[in-house]
């Protein structure tokens, strides 16, 4: 299993996904690999190959609470390498025969995306919940 946290470490709440995967990494769960990434690039698709489960943890401005959804492939046909989203990454992996058996997206509410290296209080308060959701997915 692979847990990917994605976001900028200098854009306040955008780092929420990476804070979550660092916490998951600290748990040293057997059979679980984590990746903390600034952005999703085509090369990441290769890391999805052969996985039973891939979980992407990302900050989101359109949710009010930590949200878990199955990750579906992007069907828009308009992928862009410089800002590939989780669904686009899955689509890429599928096209290249690297799709995992299952994939999920954990979204952490973000309210402040300004310059900063610490999560806002609101986002920080939801990290425990997000970590618990990741643990439930990989259990």
């Amino acid at each position: 299993m692979l847990v990917i946290g994605v976001g900028s470490l200098v854009r306040t709440d955008d780092a929420a996904g990476r804070v979550v995967v660092e916490r998951v990494d600290d748990l040293a769960l057997p059979g679980v690999e984590v990746a903390s990434l600034h952005q999703l690039t085509p090369e990441v698709a290769a890391r999805l190959a052969g996985r039973r489960l891939v979980v992407v943890v990302d900050a989101a401005v359109d949710v009010a609470e930590v949200t878990v959804t199955p990750l579906a492939t992007d069907a828009s046909g308009r992928l862009v390498t410089h800002h590939l989203g989780a669904a686009g990454l899955l689509r890429l992996a599928a096209d290249l025969g690297w799709a995992p058996d299952a994939a999920a997206l954990v979204r952490v509410p973000a309210s402040d995306l300004g310059i900063g290296t610490e999560l806002s209080a609101a986002a920080a308060a939801r990290v425990d919940t997000a970590v618990a959701e990741v643990r439930a997915l990989i259990a």
Binding site: P42, E43, A45, A46, D95, L96, G97, W98
Partner: peptide, 9 residues
């Protein structure tokens, strides 16, 4: 495409 991605990776 797989070859290219793996080489860059």
């Amino acid at each position: 495409a797989r070859r290219g991605i793996r080489l860059r990776q």
